[in-house]
């Protein structure tokens, strides 16, 4: 989930190429729609997005999809965001990130 279509679509495609089923959304509504339809293991969220931010989005998604894990992937590393992100006991990564590093963190998060 990211407001940059180019980024989020490409990343989803690359993850798919590595055998990870990934859907992407560039708006909160779309994200909710997907979350209701499917049962996801993990969501990668941008922190800074227009209208609805990553932290808020995470809380809403948690309600829809129980047991969903999260990774923050953001272009901005402000201290407040970092603290909020870290406090939720999830990974907090700063763009640009190497795809292998991301996959590793995903596995770590899912406890594999």
């Amino acid at each position: 989930m990211d407001d940059e279509i180019e980024f989020v679509s490409t990343l989803a495609e690359r993850l798919s190429l590595r055998g990870i089923e990934a859907d992407w959304a560039n708006s909160a509504e779309k994200a909710f729609e997907y979350a209701e339809k499917n049962n996801y293991d993990l969501a990668v969220l941008d922190v800074k997005m227009p209208r609805i931010g990553g932290i808020e989005l995470k809380q809403s998604l948690e309600k829809i999809c129980e047991g969903l894990r999260f990774i923050y992937l953001t272009g901005h590393g402000s201290e407040a965001d970092y603290r909020a992100g870290s406090a939720e006991a999830v990974h907090y990564l700063v763009k640009p990130v190497h795809i292998d590093a991301l996959i590793e963190k995903m596995k770590e998060t899912l406890g594999q």
Binding site: E6, F7, T10, R14, G75, P96, H98
Partner: peptide, 18 residues
């Protein structure tokens, strides 16, 4: 500035990665 640059940078990264 870093944030603004990071976003397009991430796109370049992903496109090149793809």
């Amino acid at each position: 500035v870093a944030h603004e640059i990071n976003n397009p940078l991430a796109i370049i990264n992903e496109k090149a990665g793809l």
